[in-house]
């Protein structure tokens, strides 16, 4: 495959960030491929999901459920809702294969809930599939290496 346009990838990641910040999660789910992985490891040096616990390790069904749950009337951990604002930066193309682009980026996310501001930072690894139709890519896998993943965390119910 020809080397993809880095600017097009950046714009795609900005679009994703905007949908997440606005809680437009139905549209966010549409960015994913039918077969997907949404993954937040606990261990920084994680190597084997079969013997290591994860904060999230969702397939399509479970990610849909995660979103459905949050919009139901009883998801108290998001009542009141976290207000989110994230910056995505340091976008690099790690490798390009047939029908697969591996992209790495960093994020800084500010969460405001109940008058208290929390900062979340980390690195994201996207596996993207090129698409002819807009917005030009589909997310096959998203792995978020959260800086605080091994520290005590009060609430990780919003989407990263």
């Amino acid at each position: 495959m020809a080397r993809p346009d880095i600017e097009a990838i950046r714009q795609f990641l900005y679009l994703e960030a905007r949908l997440l910040d606005r809680w437009d999660l139905e549209a966010w789910l549409d960015l994913f491929d039918d077969e997907l992985r949404y993954w937040i490891p606990v261990r920084h040096d994680s190597i084997d999901v079969e013997v290591e616990v994860q904060h999230a390790y969702d397939d399509r069904t479970q990610l849909n459920e995660r979103v459905t749950r949050l919009f139901g009337p009883h998801a108290y951990a998001q009542q009141p809702r976290s207000r989110l604002s994230r910056i995505v930066a340091n976008v690099t193309i790690e490798s390009v294969d047939e029908d697969r682009i591996d992209v790495r980026s960093t994020f800084l996310l500010t969460e405001l809930r109940r008058g208290s501001t929390d900062m979340w930072a980390g690195e994201t690894e996207h596996v993207l599939r090129p698409r002819l139709e807009a917005p030009g890519f589909a997310i096959a896998a998203k792995k978020v290496l959260l800086l605080a993943s091994e520290e005590p965390i009060d609430n990780l119910t919003f989407l990263l």
């Binding site: 606990v42 616990v53 904060h55 009060d154």
Partner: peptide, 11 residues
């Protein structure tokens, strides 16, 4: 592990 994660933990 997957059964555990479904309910427990901060996420």
């Amino acid at each position: 592990l997957r059964v555990h994660e479904h309910f427990y933990g901060p996420g």
